[in-house]
Computed example of a mutant assay.
Amino acid sequence: MVKLLILGTGSMAVSHATNFQAAPDTELVAAVETDAARREAFGKQFGIENLFADLESAIAWGEFDAVANVTPDAVHYPTTMRLIAAGKHVFCEKPLATSYPLALEMADAAEAKGIINMVNFTYRNSPALQKARELVRSGAIGDIRYFEASYLQSWLVSKAWGDWRTESRWLWRLSSQHGSKGVLGDVGVHIVDFASFGADTDIVAVDSRLKTFHKADGDKIGEYPLDANDSAVMTAEFANGALGTITATRFATGHANDLTLRIFGTSGGMEVKTDGKTSALRICEGPEIDTFGWETVECPPVPTTYERFAKACNTGVNGEPDFRRAAEVQRILDLCFAQEATRALHAAAPATAAE
């Protein structure tokens, strides 16, 4: 039985607590939250009696085996490193860190300490994605030659989730000053993992563009400068040489939260779709290649990331996705940010008179 502590009690922590309470051989024993009112409310909601105002107090108490780290992105690194030093297993929210060097340091430290380390790439929970990877591995579509992956959201257009212009829970995601790395840092981390995991390969090169659109007078609302990227487009190359595109945007009118992956090989093609709740897989192979026919593939349920982490803690065998995988995804994102920074620098450079 793994004894679990929840670190941070924001909205995503509710999902963690709910899923871990349902996971086999798992007991929620404690929570850490700096805000007293939220701390007490969270404890009452999930029946957690051991509540702490800071991580050091919880570590001093010590009666837990593992931690679900649901703190803000920039806090993942210092808190996780402290937990690793204390010998606690860690299930960290995405992104693992705000940069590749920090993520790599976390992966190295966790492996050196021998603790269970995993990251919550929630779309690994898609039965269709897991089945697609299995089919790629079996050679069902031959060698991959081309792919398309997209993550489409529309909360900058639709008010289905509320009005982003007036709500801090959305505004901070548009402001680098408040820790946001835009759509690339928020959901790009998911679609990069989604694409390369589904295709059962690594991304070896990217050429990207990031775009921030004018959304308010002075590009600012209250204390929030609206400078984080709203759309991201990258051309990517897989390890076998296949080329494709990976895109993410918050301006996809008509789409709530849709991930799509299309993979085309020398003997077939597949399409994966999910909204995080339901998923579907289609394949075109065999005689249907000549008739352009697509068949729906049945996809059995798969364990969630929460269940896989609980199992890893109970068996001592690390699960996927681990810290090193998350660091590799962060490497790709860092390349995209670096390319955009270089482009901006060149655009700002004064013109040189021709000789």
Rank of each mutant, 00 (worst) to 15 (best):
G87D: 10
M106R: 12
A348N: 10
A37D: 08
F213S: 14
T274V: 06
I6M: 09
V233D: 06
L243W: 14
F46Y: 15
S208C: 08
G265D: 05
V70N: 12
F251K: 00
H190V: 04
L335Y: 14
S267A: 08
W164D: 15
K181L: 11
D217L: 10
P225L: 04
I221T: 08
V75C: 13
N117H: 07
T245H: 07
P127D: 02
R133S: 00
M234K: 00
N240E: 05
L83A: 14
I203L: 13
A347G: 00
E288R: 08
S11A: 12
A36H: 06
D54M: 01
G293P: 10
G198A: 11
E49I: 03
W172H: 13
I144Y: 03
R145A: 08
D54A: 01
Y306D: 08
A13F: 02
K215C: 05
G87W: 08
V14Q: 14
E340V: 04
A149F: 09
A97E: 02
R331V: 00
F264V: 02
L129Q: 07
A109C: 15
G222D: 15
T9C: 15
L102M: 03
F52E: 08
H346Q: 13
G254E: 02
L104Q: 07
R308L: 13
A236P: 13
D143G: 03
T274L: 01
I144C: 12
E223T: 08
A310T: 04
T253P: 02
V14A: 12
E328D: 13
E298V: 02
R38V: 01
G87A: 08
D193Q: 10
D73K: 09
S267T: 10
L156P: 03
H255G: 03
Q177C: 08
R173E: 15
T235K: 13
A36V: 13
F323R: 05
Q177N: 11
T274S: 13
A252T: 00
L129G: 02
I203G: 12
A110G: 15
A242P: 10
L171T: 03
R124C: 00
L5K: 10
H16G: 05
A228P: 12
P301N: 10
T235I: 01
H214P: 06
R325L: 06
Y151F: 12
A353C: 07
A242R: 09
V90H: 05
T278L: 01
S231C: 05
